[in-house]
Amino acid sequence: MEPILAGLTGLLVAAGVYLMLSGNLVRYLFGLVMLSNAANLLIFVAGGLTRSAPPLIEAGQKVPAEGVANALPQALILTAIVIGFGLFCFALALAYRAFYAMGTAKMDDMRLAEPLEDTAK
């Protein structure tokens, strides 16, 4: 299963990047979500796949059963998901703001910080 999930990760990355490069704010946001999904999956898969053995300690035991899933990447991803969500919200707010401030959703037309030099004076 590992190679398939690796392929899926690559697919999510490719789709995310392609969407982010589109130059349209909305598609950029979609791409951002895809990319953060891909990053989470990447860490998860890299930490090793274990089926049907969550990292919990059974009642009455002091240590988990032999061979439970790796808890470390799970903890990393859990926060990463929430942070990614926070980042997404912020990007969404920025996108909204930029759209209304500049009247366009085309990213390449947003040139407030680096205005076009007047070549055709």
Partner: peptide, 25 residues
């Protein structure tokens, strides 16, 4: 926000995406 639109296939961007995606895989 405005509609997203699709647009035609952007070969250059697609190459970059595929290269990075395959790299990650």
């Amino acid at each position: 926000l405005p509609r997203a639109g699709t647009g035609r296939l952007r070969i250059g961007d697609a190459s970059i995406s595929v290269m990075l995606g395959l790299g990650v895989t």
